[in-house]
Amino acid sequence: MRLLREAGHLVRVALVLAAGVVLFLIIRNAVVPKDFGRYGHFRPEALGVIRAHPVAFAGQSTCVACHDDQAKERAAGKHAHVACEACHGPQAAHVADIANVKPALPDVATLCARCHEKNAAKPKSFPQVVTAEHSGGVACNTCHKPHNPQI
């Protein structure tokens, strides 16, 4: 009993520490998102937040749904497996508002060269030219139709 009285101040320290732990547990319980850890150590809501990001590229099937004439032309040629938006850029905004958002026509001079300008690092089988020698500055689409590039 005497020992307990002489150690009274230590009990106070223990109480202060215990009060801190209890306070921490209460706050933790109140603040941690309720379903945290449902699928792993993260907030499941994060999946929804990330999925909510808007789409910029509408996707091949969406383009073809309307532009089937171009799709047919392309399917007959070497560009059959090149998606529309690979050249025309992201068009989800156009899909969402067809009347007001019109896709800009790609600039042939830079567009074709990006893929077909000769570069030793490109696969040997891939069709490539030194544009300056090949056309001497004449625009590619003078001879080649972009959707079916065969002359």
């Binding site: 009285r5 002489e6 101040h9 106070r12 320290v13 202060v16």
Partner: peptide
């Protein structure tokens, strides 16, 4: 800072030392 305990008897100080 005393946490309300002003007991500094030799016995309590011995306990302090051990702890």
């Amino acid at each position: 800072l005393t946490l309300g305990s002003q007991n500094v008897s030799p016995a309590s100080r011995r306990i302090d030392d051990k702890v």
